[in-house]
């Protein structure tokens, strides 16, 4: 991951500030930076979103392709995650340099989506055991300014919200051979319900306190952090400790509570932004990277 070099004095300044509930950029311990979300930025995908959280910049594209259901789940489609840490973010990611971090993030995404409630996978099935939709969720990391996991999970949720899968029908003739027919109307498509898609809240332990949405500098001062993936109802679907330090059990419970509280707020505001953008319809002026 992109790293910053901090002197001892700078670290002390950050740690003492956090203890007084005042961070370097003027936020309190439970404040997020301003999040910018835009959906439908790449037109040849089924759904896409770009999220900017401080200096962290994420682009997610979802492509729906037809595949065969997995043997153990014959009447469900599935999601595939791939994270590309591009060299744009930092020269360290050149060549195969970003693969480790990419795999780590992709595995975390697999884990937080690994429960029945997050996405209705049954709606992705076309004909049991034969055809289903496979959603390839591809995350592109463009700039790295701390708190990657939260930004990526917000972008994935926004992209899934934006995803439109063409409606298909299975026609069966007398001999039993099946034919898949695509709807003529390009606007006739199915949408995914993203109500239960979780978002990750990362809590960084700095000194005796924990902060949400840490910047790169704050991440450099923290020894350990806790990833909590929370749904809009405040249900925790996954939890993971990351970082090289250790955490005591009591603080884990404290952090979990904060995570749940922050997660609910995050979901509410994300949902309202997405709805607002949706209501503008196709007339919306697209900003993308030009704004």
């Amino acid at each position: 991951m992109a790293s910053v070099a901090l002197s001892e004095a700078e670290k002390v300044y950050i740690v003492h500030g956090v203890q007084e509930d005042l961070r370097v950029d003027g936020r309190g311990c439970e404040d997020y930076r301003c999040v910018e979300v835009e959906t439908d930025v790449v037109s040849n995908t089924s759904g896409s979103a770009r999220v900017k959280l401080g200096h962290t910049d994420i682009l997610v594209g979802v492509k729906a392709e037809m595949g065969t259901p997995k043997l153990e789940r014959p009447n469900e489609g599935y999601l595939e995650f791939f994270v590309d840490c591009s060299a744009n973010a930092t020269p360290e990611f050149e060549g195969r340099g970003g693969d480790d971090l990419g795999t780590e993030i992709a595995n975390t995404l697999y884990r937080i989506f690994n429960n029945k409630s997050s996405v209705d996978l049954k709606s992705l099935c076309i004909s049991p055991r034969e055809h289903c939709w496979v959603l390839y969720v591809d995350v592109l990391l463009l700039e790295c300014g701390g708190n990657l996991f939260d930004a990526i999970s917000i972008a994935v949720k926004a992209a899934l919200f934006n995803t439109r899968i063409p409606r298909v029908r299975v026609l069966e003739d007398e001999e039993g051979s099946k034919d898949i027919e695509l709807s003529d109307d390009p606007y006739d498509c199915i949408r995914l319900s993203v109500e239960n898609v979780p978002c990750i809240v990362t809590l960084c332990k700095i000194g005796y306190r924990h902060v949400v949405d840490a910047t790169l500098q704050e991440e450099a001062c923290s020894l350990a952090s806790l990833l909590v993936s929370v749904t809009s109802k405040g249900v925790v679907t996954c939890m993971r400790k990351v970082g090289k330090g250790s955490l005591d059990p009591e603080s884990i419970f404290e952090m979990m509570e904060t995570g749940k509280r922050m997660g609910k707020v995050l979901h509410t505001s994300l949902q309202s932004v997405l709805q607002k953008e949706e209501s503008l319809g196709p007339k919306r002026q697209k900003v993308g990277f030009l704004g």
């Binding site: 790449v42 594209g61 390839y136 592109l140």
Partner: peptide, 12 residues
């Protein structure tokens, strides 16, 4: 280094 996003082309 040239790279092209996995979703950039028609076929993934």
């Amino acid at each position: 280094q040239y790279s092209s996003a996995t979703f950039s082309t028609g076929e993934r």
